Computed example of a mutant assay.
Amino acid sequence: MRTSNHLIGLLNFLTFLLSIPILGGGIWLSSRANSTDCMRFLQWPLIVIGVAIMVVSLAGFAGACYRNTFLMRFYLVCMFFIIAALISFIIFAYGVTDKGGGKPVDNRAYRDYYLQDYSGWLKDRVASDSYWGKISSCIRESKACKKIAVTVNGVPETESMFYLRKLNPIQSGCCKPPTDCGYTYVNETYWTPGGGLAGTNPDCSLWNNDQDQLCYSCSSCKVGVLASLRHSWRKVSVINIVILIILVIAYVVGCGAYRNNKRIDNDEPYGEARMTKAQPSRLQF
Rank of each mutant, 00 (worst) to 15 (best):
V155D: 00
G196V: 01
R234W: 11
Y163I: 11
K176N: 08
D203S: 07
K166A: 09
T200F: 03
S217E: 08
D98Y: 11
N107G: 06
Y216R: 03
E141H: 06
P202G: 02
D117A: 10
W121Q: 04
Y190T: 15
V236P: 04
C175P: 00
A127W: 04
C215I: 03
E188C: 07
S142W: 12
S220T: 15
T184A: 09
D210C: 09
L164N: 07
T97K: 01
L122Q: 04
N107A: 14
D124S: 08
N209D: 05
Y163G: 01
Y114R: 11
E159F: 06
L164Y: 05
G199Q: 05
K99L: 13
K146R: 11
K166E: 00
D98T: 03
C138T: 11
S205Y: 11
F162K: 05
G120H: 11
S172K: 03
D98W: 08
K134M: 02
P178S: 06
S137T: 11
Y185S: 12
C145V: 15
N107C: 08
K134L: 06
K146M: 05
P156L: 07
Y131N: 08
L226D: 00
S237C: 09
S128Y: 09
I170M: 09
D180L: 10
E159P: 01
P104L: 03
D129V: 13
R140C: 01
N107H: 13
Y185K: 10
D124L: 12
E159I: 02
Y216F: 13
R108N: 06
A198F: 10
V150E: 09
M161N: 05
E141G: 05
V105W: 05
A109M: 07
G100T: 14
S232A: 15
L164F: 04
G101N: 14
K99I: 12
R230G: 11
W207I: 03
D112S: 04
C215H: 11
A109Q: 11
G195T: 01
